[in-house]
Amino acid sequence: MNLEQLSQWADPIGAVIGFVLTLMVLSYVIGDNFLFRIAIHIFIGVASGYAAVIIFYNIFWNQVILPLLLVFLQGAPSGLLVSLAHILPVLLLGGWMLTKASPRLARLGTPVLAFLVGVGAATVIGGALFGTLIPQVAATAGVLDLDAAPDDTGKLVGWFISSIFILVGTVTTLSYFQFGVRPHIEGAIPTRHPFFESMATIGQGFIAITLGVFFAGVLAAALVALVDRARFLWQVIQSIFL
């Protein structure tokens, strides 16, 4: 049997394996059991193995070995040196970081991790500032922008009310996470200012609605997966037994 023939059998075999694995995982509705755990451990093994190979191909092969090989084959020593100068430091840093795998040598890899965390923190700051904070504040401030208002008077009222609602909702949601309290008498329970307390209560309502929509979305996605599995099971039963 050659590879092509084998590949023709791959789909039915894969379907049966998928069928069995689906049932093993769905058995969790009864409770945690041996079959469920076996299926989960197989899944973790396959996912980790695939990730390891992807990293090797995409990083070590595509960004380290292949460029050096190509430059070497081109026969340009200066280019090779430039490539080495480009690649070697990061290779050394990567090898240095792998000392974290050993409990005895773990402390040695901390400087590399510090470099990674520093660059990552700066990237996150830049993204949060220019990607979310400024645009979203501008959008909140421009919610009552009359240029974006509809021309129809009837819709204008609805637009205005909705805009006020959005503005109030945004501000009160933010104020819910304001936990500063006033200076209080010894022994008394610290409380926020009554104005902030009332704003936080309103914000709590908006958060409840947002989380309700979020929960409904998660449930909907899970229901689609359930429908998809049901469809798959039926297709396998249909193809094998019917």
């Binding site: 990607g131 645009p135 979203q136 501008a138 959008a139 421009g142 919610v143 922008d145 240029d147 974006a148 947002t210 929509v213 979020f214 409904a216 979305g217 998660v218 909907a220 996605a221 689609v224």
Partner: peptide, 24 residues
């Protein structure tokens, strides 16, 4: 569907950051 509520704010405003959203 689960990511839609947190992406909708990026689609609104005078200069939306996301020009089109296909959710769920």
């Amino acid at each position: 569907s689960q990511a839609e509520p947190l992406v909708i704010p990026y689609t609104s405003g005078a200069l939306p950051q996301v020009q089109g959203l296909l959710a769920g």
